[in-house]
Design a protein around this nucleic acid. Structure first.
Lengths: 219, 219
DNA sequence: GTCTATACATGGATAGAC
DNA sequence: GTCTATCCATGTATAGAC
């Protein structure tokens, strides 16, 4: 086994440093120290700190997307979807990958290279969620009222929100999942033919949707 | 009218700078320049940059909580709740207050003073949401299966997730709300007596809940 | 309360020897 | 590919005059 290349050591170290020091505390010097290499090599191998972070971000998100795709492929109910969300969240507790994303999102607001990397990465992350949701609503009354691509982004964003707050507002840690699972239970029930007649649900959903639309443009 | 005090000018400027430059680009010098006062006055009036940010954060969150409390007080359905979420989101488009929270959350990971301020602030933010949800489920079949305090934190966190991604992953901007409103419609329908008999829903929800619990501890 | 001046640390990035 | 040395900008914070 050859020793890990300096280039790769810097990529790994960058993620560790971002997770530990935050985006504001991440510098070429600190990353190099973490990788135990000379500071100038950050610029030799990666051009700039932001390019290094962008590359590292692409790597970590590819790993994350693969993990999500794998975990979601057998999902057949909203209840199961929330259970997977809980499991993924638990598995990522304290992991480097988890802390990095929120730090990079904050950094992306002012650093174009990081923003570009995250945009590409978010698409990877949303794809498996979208595929799963499309499978879940196919053939149900929800199919014609739920905008699946948008819902997938909403779900991914909400999940991110939980990860973002976890550890800062510490009392939120395990709390979200029972709540989400209870709601998923209601939705799953609503989808079961026999509990609500599909035709009735469809009609009512359409009516409710129309009301929302008219509420949104008052007077 | 007396001119705004230097102390207050610094508080206002701090938020502007955090929103514009991000937490990583926020320094005493930049804040002082934005406030058009001398750099040393940051330390004279606020002790340190982090203390200034913590104070400013408390102020901005108090404003935000007041806005939310006001907007939520007349909510009587989940559909209306999502409509309010959409309105609040739209109103905060491009506002200083909106960008600040995510930046401070990222900063909180490594800066104790900011973390403490945000913890206090999050409680303010969750309170009106919790009160609203408690009102919504009171007397319905959901009352005994939904953990309201946890759900309130989940909703707040999810909302934050949307705000966090908005502007970075640009295609998410307006998308979440139709999706959320469609789901809220389903939940509201499920709660309407006559659509589903309450007793049936209760029994099924309990059973679904039990299945989730046993799924969570396999083999 | 506000200013100038300054000490001192850290950071991005490059030149040039090896 | 890697190292040392260095330039220069920016940042925190304080001392002391006004």
């Amino acid at each position: 086994m050859t020793a890990t290349s300096t280039r790769q050591r810097l990529l790994d170290a960058a993620l560790v440093v971002v997770a530990r020091e935050g985006i504001a505390g991440t510098s070429a010097r600190v990353i190099a120290a973490e990788a135990d290499v000379n500071q100038a090599l950050v610029f030799y191998h990666h051009g700039s700190v932001d390019e290094l972070l962008a590359t590292a971000s692409r790597d970590v998100s590819a790993r994350r997307a693969a993990r999500y795709t794998d975990a979601l492929q057998d999902i057949t109910s909203f209840t199961a979807l929330t259970a997977v969300a809980r499991r993924l969240h638990d598995e990522e507790q304290g992991s480097v990958d988890r802390l990095v994303l929120t730090q990079l999102l904050a950094g992306a607001r002012t650093r174009p290279l990081i923003a570009a990397a995250l945009r590409a990465n978010m698409a990877l992350l949303v794809a498996p969620v979208e595929a799963t949701l499309a499978r879940l609503v196919a053939g149900t009354a929800l199919e014609e009222v739920l905008p699946v691509p948008e819902l997938a982004r909403t779900v991914a964003a909400g999940f991110l929100g939980l990860e973002l707050l976890d550890g800062v507002v510490t009392d939120i840690e395990a709390a979200p999942f029972p709540a989400l699972e209870a709601i998923a239970g209601v939705v799953d029930l609503a989808l079961q033919a026999g509990t609500i007649e599909t035709a009735v649900l469809r009609r009512r959903l359409r009516r409710a949707n129309a009301e929302v639309a008219s509420d949104a443009e008052p007077g």
